[in-house]
């Protein structure tokens, strides 16, 4: 593209935006709003996922063994299951020592008749499917009981799944809305310049020559909205982060800087992509001359 042509496109695009000033403003406002909602969901989803990961990390499954069980074989068997990060064998003697030490008593458990069973502690991997894992462990020979924070983990996993599903659907829905808004805004400027487009086609302008100014308009609308969104969301997240730290310091949050960097990139990229797709859609019909 010649530099002169590029300037021509830029000039035409700015004229289009200015001529339809109110519409451009409305578009930026609405797109920003949609992107903010989108971004909020992204933040919430990310934090839930983060929280779930952390929860899994500190979570252990305890497997109590029967008297006659062979701990070494069992350990190797368990290690083969997916979702298992590490196993650690705690013998009944170790268990008794740990218990006496913690309870501050002596020679009650560490005796010949130690009532505690042998135990294997399992550390979970991040992608662990706890329920399946427990079921698999229960099929092994020599297992007395499997103990884990059942309800907590399950609830956590369900919530994460729901948030993802709702989030993804909303994401798609809001994406469509943003596309529709951009397409409509551009369509108005296209309609206002229908005659111009017709003449351009008749004097031999290529389709891309006609399309560029509208594309630039779309990109500009998307870009402005996404920058505004990025600023709003990052301020908002930092503020909320501090607030939560004050009232509930035990709730873990994704590091603000990291998340905001991601968010800004995602929001700006989607803003621009929406701008391009929206304008391509709206001008298509008018190019058939």
């Amino acid at each position: 593209m010649k530099l002169k042509t590029f300037w021509y496109f830029t000039k035409e695009a700015s004229l289009g935006l200015i001529r339809n000033g109110i519409m451009s403003f409305t578009a930026v406002f609405t797109i920003t709003l949609s992107l903010v909602i989108l971004g909020c969901f992204y933040i919430v989803m990310n934090n839930f996922a983060y929280f779930a990961d952390l929860a899994k990390e500190v979570l252990e499954i305890r497997v109590y063994l029967k008297e006659e069980a062979d701990p070494i074989t069992l350990q190797t068997e368990i290690l083969k299951f997916s979702g298992v990060k590490d196993v650690k064998f705690v013998s009944k003697l170790d268990g008794a020592k740990w218990l006496e030490k913690n309870l501050g008593i002596k020679e009650i458990f560490v005796t010949e008749d130690n009532p505690l069973p042998d135990m294997i502690n399992i550390k979970l991997a991040e992608d662990a499917k706890v329920k399946n894992l427990v079921r698999s462990i229960n099929t092994l020979e020599g297992i007395e009981e499997v103990e884990y924070g059942k309800t907590f983990i399950e609830a956590m996993l369900v919530i994460v799944r729901i948030v993802w599903i709702v989030g993804i659907s909303l994401l798609a829905l809001i994406g469509l809305v943003v596309l529709y808004i951009i397409a409509n805004t551009i369509k108005l400027t296209v309609i206002a310049r229908r005659k111009e487009i017709e003449i351009m086609k008749l004097v031999g302008a290529t389709d891309w020559f006609i399309r560029w100014p509208f594309l630039l308009e779309g990109i500009f609308l998307g870009l402005v909205s996404s920058v505004v969104t990025a600023v709003i969301l990052s301020k908002f997240y930092v503020f909320i982060g501090q607030y939560i730290k004050q009232i509930a310091p035990f709730i873990p949050l994704v590091n603000a800087g990291e998340l905001i960097n991601q968010l800004v990139m995602i929001v700006i990229a989607s803003g621009i992509i929406f701008g391009i797709i929206g304008s391509v859609f709206s001008i298509k019909k008018f190019l058939r001359v």
Binding site: K2, K4, Y8, E196, I199, A205, I210
Partner: peptide
């Protein structure tokens, strides 16, 4: 079929601009 927001000169130049004349 003239463009009302362009001058006489610009209307004529338009035909050359869209074919990327210098």
């Amino acid at each position: 079929k003239l463009l009302s927001n362009k001058t006489v000169f610009e209307n004529v130049a338009f035909a050359l601009e869209v074919i990327e004349a210098t």
